[in-house]
Nucleic acid binder design. Sequence first.
RNA 1: GGCCCGGUAGCUCAGCUGGAUAGAGCACCAGCCUUCUAAGCUGGGGGUCAUUGGUUCGAAUCCAAUCCGGGUCACCA
Length: 599
Amino acid sequence: MTLAAQVKHAAFDALKHLFTDVQIDYNLISVNQTKPEFTGNYTIVLFPFVKLLRQKPDVIGTQIGDYLLEKTPLFTRYDIVSGFLNMTVKDSYCISFLLNHFTDTTFGRQCKADCRVMVEYSSPNTNKPLHFGHMRNIFLGAAVAEILKANGKQVVKANLINDRGIHICKSMIAWMWYADGATPESTGIKGDHLVGDYYVKFNEVYKQEVAGLIAAGKDEKTAEKEAPIMQAAQDMLRKWEAGDKEVKELWARMNGWVYKGFEESYKKQGVSFDKTYYESDTYLLGKKIVEDGLRKGVLFRKDDGSVWIDLKDDGLDEKLLLRGDGTSVYITQDLGTAKLKYDDYKLNQSVYVIGDEQNYHIQVLKLILKKIGEPCADGIFHLSYGMVELPTGKMKSREGTVVDADDMVAEMISLSREQTEQSGKTDGFTADELTRLYEMIGLGALKFYLLRVDPKKRMIFNPKESIDLHGFTATFIQYAHARICSILRRENVPIVPGATRFQSLQPTGDLLPLEKDMILHIEQYPGVLAEAADEFNPSTLCNYSFALAQLFNTFYDAHSISKAESEEKKNLRLMIIVMTASVLRHGMGLLGIRLPEKM
RNA sequence: GGCCCGGUAGCUCAGCUGGAUAGAGCACCAGCCUUCUAAGCUGGGGGUCAUUGGUUCGAAUCCAAUCCGGGUCACCA
């Protein structure tokens, strides 16, 4: 149990024993960290009890304070300041916390529980390469998956590849007409980029054709429908669905290029998946569920044969589930995929990392499954995140106004190279080590930048302003870690010390304020990690880790570790920084950010 | 128009299950490297927490209304 939780329990216990005639609601107790300008570490707010107990805050505070000093081993003193009971934690408590945990390589983690969770993220279309917006999705999904794992869940990381449909036919038709047989091998262009180029080409040609038809007197709607290249794409989609051999071959070939490209991008980004679903395998699945829904009377069929659900009672609208011709729409296949996932892994929870533009879609999806009585419905959770936009507005693959993911990774790595070289700290590194270091810093900065803000907030990225490597960044945390490792090297302390290294340390004397601050901050890590999981929010870990690194830097500047006042102090401080490094490494590791031992 | 999300320092954001004088980073100004890595540290200026009302001992936080920005309501995905 975290210290904050212990304080709350203890306060509850005190109130129960001191005021036996009054029922105290546990939720009435509010425990905060004490503001730095007051003496104390944790504060119990007294106002909520004043009316209930018909006594002045000071009187209640004194009684609780005395009780806590006497009955718990946690506190050394208390102060009451205008309705706030400030409890000061014993130094000896802090020191025994350190002794108990500094070798604990599982600090903060929960034991594995029988709870299976799938996190679906990335889920790209195969007609274009990944862009900056996709990276927010990918890093979020990967981070949340790891955070859940650390909290004891059994996690399946899943990718659902949108490999069929009109969008891929657009790239295919443009490639057939204009590529002259170009392949990634013949051009040296990465497969996903090559295919993406023809997606852009399609839209250029399409735009021209539409303009031409409008000039020839057609109205816009008709022109859009009759443009030859669009008709060709639709014709190709029909052939694909009919199983046309040539079309399927080209489709498989071009998708193959894209997969190879994605694989490279994922690898570079340091992310992976346990399971990949392909929409070409799943797009027909939902029909059975629809039939089931019809049988149960949850769905209804209109005269033209189309199938609908009426969600008006839930404040929504009617929603189409099957077209008049019996073919699936987007949501139909999602119904099927939701069930497939559930059946494949017997999931307790299924997390969808999808942009907030699809909030309504997922809400409807969940509702339909619930109404049809599918057990997979309850576990569906939409991890909704805001879009990444450019200062000029949305990124549009169609128009080529995107920040490409591969380019962005490369740019960040080269930026970190530049700044490292500028600082003149490349001595003592081999070329290989430097390559790895630049990757760590560049990719770390990128991930941190995308994960440090609340997922549900949309963000604007200005490509003209490169991502900073100072201040609230991964680099800052990496630097603190490297500094710690440097001290540990000098003191011959392994980064993960053995159990006996400091066991002989006897706590005597007082802790300095900064020593205590650091220990108390480290102590909060398990709570922060649990919160990140509860809220599916990696930014919690960014804020926490940054604050810890900041605290370390302040400490580092104020007190020497190697030349501490005594051997005892030195050992104490070594333990503090060992735990600091280990917590930083773990927390950032969950976000896919690695911390160097030297930089 | 209905529903959903957001509005906090010049900029990017924390804080939002109500608690003390609203915090970081960037930018700006002034200091700190003969001492464990200055990618750092210390100090400074900078705020009607969109507006108005309500609930409360106490509101950036909860409620209502309004304003602004975004999303969504397709036989697209």
